[in-house]
Amino acid sequence: VTLFVASYDYEARTEDDLSFHKGEKFQILNSSEGDWWEARSLTTGETGYIPSNYVAPV
């Protein structure tokens, strides 16, 4: 399981994006799509795309 933590807050801009807060942890589901990764929030359980430059490895 690949875990990352949010370095910043992010507000979703499309329905496919995932909003999150600094400190929130994610399981990365797919990182092969470039700068936007499909992730599941371990806080909310929601799945969506997050900007990879807003998160760091745990």
Rank of each mutant, 00 (worst) to 15 (best):
V1A: 12
V1T: 14
V1E: 14
T2N: 12
T2P: 13
T2V: 13
T2C: 15
L3H: 10
L3R: 05
F4W: 15
F4A: 10
V5Y: 08
V5H: 04
V5T: 07
S7Y: 13
S7A: 12
Y8P: 00
Y8T: 09
D9L: 01
D9R: 02
Y10C: 05
Y10S: 02
Y10E: 01
Y10M: 02
E11D: 09
R13T: 13
R13M: 12
T14S: 14
T14N: 14
T14H: 14
T14W: 13
T14G: 15
E15H: 11
D16C: 15
D17K: 15
D17P: 01
L18N: 00
L18F: 08
L18C: 03
S19A: 06
S19M: 02
F20I: 06
K22T: 07
K22S: 07
E24A: 05
K25H: 12
F26D: 01
F26E: 00
Q27V: 15
Q27F: 13
Q27R: 07
Q27T: 09
I28Y: 02
L29F: 06
L29S: 05
L29D: 04
N30R: 08
S31G: 09
S31D: 13
S32K: 10
E33M: 14
E33Y: 12
E33A: 13
G34Y: 09
G34E: 12
D35P: 10
D35C: 13
W36R: 14
W37L: 08
W37K: 02
W37G: 01
E38M: 15
A39Y: 02
R40V: 11
S41G: 02
S41W: 01
L42I: 09
T43S: 11
T43F: 09
T43P: 02
T43D: 10
T43E: 14
T44F: 02
T44C: 02
T44H: 04
G45W: 06
E46S: 09
E46K: 15
T47F: 07
T47N: 05
T47K: 09
G48W: 03
G48T: 01
G48M: 03
Y49V: 07
Y49D: 02
Y49C: 14
I50S: 01
P51V: 02
P51S: 05
S52Y: 07
N53I: 09
Y54E: 03
Y54I: 07
Y54P: 04
V55A: 05
P57Q: 08
P57H: 06
P57F: 06
P57Y: 05
